[in-house]
Simulated assay, not measured.
Amino acid sequence: MDGNPITPAGMAALRARYEQLLHTDRPAIVEVVRWAAGNGDRSENGDYIYGRKRLREIDRELGHLAKRMAAARVIDPARQSERDRVLFGCSVEIADDDDNRRTLTLVGDDEQDAGLSKIGWSAPIVRALRGAKVGDVRRVALPGGEKNWEVLAISWPDA
């Protein structure tokens, strides 16, 4: 899959963060810096120094988000035609050799959240599972060693 795949919800979250930074957070910090600059000596003015630092951080994040959104390729998982294989956007139930079961949802790297079992498209476990069908066993190289995972079920969001 070319580019940076992302779900429509993931792209909306990136856009919302970008808009929040650009139209709310940045203007508020600019106003604080403007006020602090008017107070005289800037070398010992904490509001001014912190404000300038925060502006640089916001500008870096805006640049990063702009690049990620430009490289993103929105893929709606509900519209996937091949529903019998592990592909972008599906939820897959897997079990290891000790029958420890997990359900993972395959999402874009910009929207991954391990606490919610949303695993990024370039994660090692996802790379190993790509294209698998129910019943397939895949070996995954993890930091703790190699592990075999069997695909038990594949599900897709409704259209």
Rank of each mutant, 00 (worst) to 15 (best):
H23Y: 11
S43C: 05
A12T: 12
D109W: 10
D110C: 12
L116A: 15
P27Q: 10
V33D: 02
K67C: 05
G144N: 11
R101Y: 03
A114W: 06
E44V: 14
L55P: 00
A159S: 14
S81Y: 06
E57M: 09
A153Q: 15
A114N: 10
W121V: 03
V74P: 01
I58D: 03
E57K: 08
Q80W: 04
R73Q: 10
G38E: 11
K147F: 07
R68A: 08
D76T: 10
Y48A: 07
R26P: 00
D59P: 00
Q80Y: 03
Q20A: 10
R56M: 08
G131W: 10
R139P: 00
E44D: 10
E111S: 15
N100A: 09
R102E: 07
R83L: 01
L87A: 12
R83W: 00
T105F: 02
D136L: 07
K118N: 11
I58W: 06
R15D: 13
F88W: 05
A114F: 11
G3Q: 13
N100P: 00
A70I: 03
S91C: 04
L152V: 15
I29A: 05
T105M: 11
D41F: 07
R79F: 09
M11S: 06
A36P: 01
R52C: 09
A128T: 03
W149K: 01
L21N: 06
N100I: 07
K118Y: 14
M69T: 13
I58P: 00
A153F: 05
P5A: 14
A123R: 01
G10E: 11
L129H: 04
V32Y: 03
A37K: 14
G135M: 07
D96M: 12
G120R: 04
D109I: 10
S81N: 09
D25R: 10
H23I: 01
L22C: 05
D113C: 06
L62W: 02
R15Y: 04
